[in-house]
Design a binder for these strands. Structure first.
Lengths: 293, 293
DNA sequence: TTGTAGGCGTTATCAC
DNA sequence: GTGATAACGCCTACAA
């Protein structure tokens, strides 16, 4: 007959809740929601449920959330850390409880945890190299700063490509901003005021790239003829624009699926500890905003 | 000291899991992920966790998911039904188990359940009225068909506005499509082939609107001077375009928050049954693609 | 083979 | 007021 077991009782008895916690800064960012989709699609067929939590980019919420998930007896935590996270005690606590902890995208190097990231250095290097191949000589970079490793890696990749091609690295061409359209406009304005303005902009965020493009077009610059632009993240809007923006795709669906698989692997291995670092290759998508040739 | 109660045991004992299930077609659609964000932000402070499930637009997955959530002893289910859902037994089953069931956006009229939707008729009427006020006389409509009530409502709102303004309703101006860019292109091509082509297009999806705009621009039509276009959903890309697309905003964040509140209300009222229908007002966002004046 | 007791971690209840 | 005990629903293990 159609008997339905009470999963709570079952879970209590077995010590296995069949629940995995996923923590992200905000659920409704395209990147995060797509990673979550990948996680859900991998875990659902295995009988797991996925609990979603948001940190709002604050360390406090992150700690509260982790505490809560531990109490909920989740069987694993998959997380992309908040921008402001400084301490790591709350993560060590998860490890101490023997709960598999998997970082994705924004990661920390903590013993007995795993991570699935993309090679931000490489993505940035490829993007910059591509701009150089388009004939650009003075390539500006919009960065979010060094708070998160992914952004400092993107800066490093950019700088390395500049140097490898015997171009001059000019720190005046590096502008720090926040990830939104207005800041991108401000950055472009600032850059074009320079005595030697850039002939390309590689932005570590698509919103920065978009803002820059908007300002430049408004001022009569032609994209890509006067200035080439490449963004980062492959936000949906970059492909839908009338003039699509080149960007670096982070393969979020795959990242989610793999993070889930790593969790499963770590989870099954009762007697031994697993620590796994997976680095995915980003995909440079060349579109109108940087296609001179 | 830092004692952590086991929520599983607590839940088993109290018969309250503090978990709410949310079911959507796909997590990573901007609209759904934003509703989920609203739900999470309302429920987290009250001590609830949110489990996310995807139906992939299939009734089968929807049934499986509901079954699973019932077994998980969720305290409520908040759902936007799949496109292909025909039967309602699985929903009645939820009601029978006394689990609060709240529909959002894509709803069904089932006893003892609640719903939070927007007034699709109104949104469509407003959009069409706006186009008429721009001087448009022959307004085409791109529809997804009648499978989901929201789309037939959008069609009705469009038709009513046409008639209320003593314009001629021409069924040749109504094109059925699927929600993607290619289909929008096809629809525009088809419409402009007519003996009396339209001077405006109101699409029930932003992707259709985008496709239409792309095709029209490519063919040399000027937007909005030759043809005005309005979409529906306020997808992020509509505002980021170089030439932003007018659209109807469904206030997803608010919708999520309210759905969560309705759940709380329904949940607290142990002894009495609550049935609530909330209809939100959509917001017409007038942008470049329809601003002639 | 079939059936029954015990315990997972809580809390609520009841006896002291 | 304090402290032991039963019960939430299930599964496992052991006994008949």
């Amino acid at each position: 007959m159609n008997y339905k077991p009470n999963k709570l009782a079952l879970a209590l008895k077995k010590g296995r809740s069949n629940i995995v916690g996923v923590i992200v800064p905000y659920i409704n960012r395209a990147f995060f929601s797509t990673v979550i989709r990948g996680i859900e699609e991998e875990l659902w067929p295995k009988g797991y449920n996925v609990i979603i939590c948001q940190t709002h980019e604050t360390e406090e919420r992150e700690k509260e959330t982790i505490n809560d998930l531990i109490n909920t007896q989740v069987e694993g935590i998959i997380i992309s850390i908040s921008k402001s996270t400084k301490s790591i005690e709350h993560f060590e606590q998860v490890v101490k409880k023997d709960i598999p902890l998997i970082f994705f995208d924004r990661s920390l190097d903590i013993k007995l945890t795993s991570s699935v990231t993309i090679n931000d250095f490489q993505g940035s290097y490829d993007a910059t190299q591509h701009l150089i191949e388009q004939g650009c000589k003075r390539i500006a970079h919009l960065t979010l700063g060094n708070e998160l490793e992914i952004y400092s890696e993107r800066f490093k990749g950019y700088k390395k490509a500049i140097e490898d091609n015997n171009l001059i690295f000019d720190k005046n061409l590096v502008v720090k901003l926040m990830s939104n359209v207005e800041e991108g406009k401000r950055a472009a304005k600032e850059l074009m005021k320079l005595n030697h303005p850039p002939d390309a902009i590689f932005s570590s965020t698509d919103y920065g790239a978009l803002g820059a493009i908007k300002w430049l077009k408004q001022k009569g610059y032609s994209i890509p003829d006067d200035i080439c632009v490449v963004g980062f993240s492959n936000e949906p809007f970059t492909q839908y624009m009338e003039s699509p923006i080149s960007s670096v795709d982070q393969t979020p669906l795959e990242m989610g699926r793999i993070a889930a698989k790593v969790f499963l692997e770590q989870s099954k291995s009762n007697n031994m500890k697993i620590e796994k670092r997976i680095i995915l290759s980003p995909k440079l998508l060349i579109r109108d905003s940087s296609s001179k040739l």
